[in-house]
Design a binder for these strands. Structure first.
Lengths: 221, 221
DNA sequence: GCATTTTTTAACGTATACATTATCAAGACC
DNA sequence: GGTCTTGATAATGTATACGTTAAAAAATGC
């Protein structure tokens, strides 16, 4: 029952699950004592885990009010997508500069195929998972730990909202065309083109998602 | 002697000072017990402070090896400046979009004037401080908390290196022309121009600093 | 009834204790 | 001499204890 890693690691992992699943509702407050009891540990590791998650923007620790599950407003979503757009576009350019050996591109290729498959079977959850993988691979290929770290953090922050809107949005059938074009530009070693294509892709996705949140009056996710 | 804020706050503030001043040397390791004693507190708040600084990329906490003061390699510097370039350029564009009232631009204007003054008197430390202020004001005007947070974090990571190279570099006389042009584009409400100008400015600064580190064989700062 | 003061409560910040376990050194063995 | 085993050491991860203090509740005054 102890699981792998230290109690702090366990707490971080479990709290993340609970946040992404909605088990801990956005905007809700939770006392340290309560969370610690829930996770079967003392306050010490729980507090350290909360600090780590706070640094990643997932919670806010406020004295006497407990740990708040950071809610996402439409404005936050817009802000995050703007940054994601810039950093992932930069990553695409860097990935294209590196003249990747084909083996390195296997992950992106597989992600694209998986998205096609998921779309064909209408499995949106698998599609979202493969889409995540595509973007994660992209930043990995950039070779920049820091870009990967920041992009990962921001992607976590919008994870709930993306899941929530997954079934409200039109089927992302055109999306994979974008992905393929970005991959082609990387494979061909054309940084400017990769950057431009990916920027347009992300911009469109961001506008669509913000639009969805506003249209459905989701003031807080 | 207790100072303001909680012991964790104090520890974060004092460790930051010690890191930036070089009092804690880049690459050096420090046991929790030792640091806690040095700051006159127990390990509990020290550990929490270390976690916060780790999330900001200033230290790495490694079991049994203590808290490592994260060193900066030339490659890191390049990586950080690339991200800074993108995000600050984005900030410049957003700042220009907002059609700032003149009062909001006072901080940037003052920073530019202070840099002129500092250059005239050859006071490089004041120049660096005013330069920091210019960039901090820029991201503030963007209105994006997240851009400000990330840019601030990255600026902290290169702080030591910038101070170290401050007296190796040519006098940054042309730099303020760039600043003025960026400010003019923001004042005139021209986002694309602001973005383009600031990007060029940051790119040049980054290349110069990386060049300096390499030229002086500073493999780790 | 409503505002203000006092009392109570309990959440937090921090110190401390302690078992666990990685690291280092000494010794055993080949 | 070099490798492996064993034991000592001490740094860590975590639980627990407790004083402080903010927030809530109760009591008081109007």
């Amino acid at each position: 029952m102890t699981g792998p890693g230290t109690r702090v690691d366990q707490a971080v992992a479990r709290l993340r699950e609970m946040i992404f699943s909605g088990d801990l509702a956005p905007g809700s407050d939770h006392l340290e004592t309560e969370l610690a009891a829930r996770l079967g540990m003392s306050r010490t590791p729980l507090r350290e885990a909360a600090l780590i998650l706070e640094a990643q923007g997932l919670v806010a620790v406020r004295p006497r009010r407990g740990v708040r599950i950071q809610p996402l407003l439409p404005g936050d979503m817009r802000e995050i997508y703007e940054i994601l757009t810039e950093l992932e576009s930069l990553a695409a350019a860097r990935a294209a500069e590196a003249r990747q050996p084909e083996a390195e591109l296997a992950g992106m290729t597989a992600a694209i195929d998986d998205m096609d498959l998921a779309l064909a079977t209408g499995d949106l959850t698998s599609w979202a998972e493969a889409d995540d993988r595509f973007h994660a691979e992209l930043v990995r290929l950039s070779g920049s730990r820091r870009i990967a770290g920041i992009v990962g953090m921001l992607a976590d922050q919008v994870r709930r909202a993306r899941r929530l809107t997954l079934h409200m949005r039109p089927l992302p059938t055109a999306s994979n065309d974008d992905h393929r074009r970005v991959l082609a530009a990387i494979r061909a070693g054309r940084p400017d083109e990769a950057r431009r294509l990916h920027r347009a892709h992300r911009q469109a996705a961001g506008e669509m998602l913000v639009g969805l949140l506003e249209k459905h009056h989701l003031r807080q996710v």
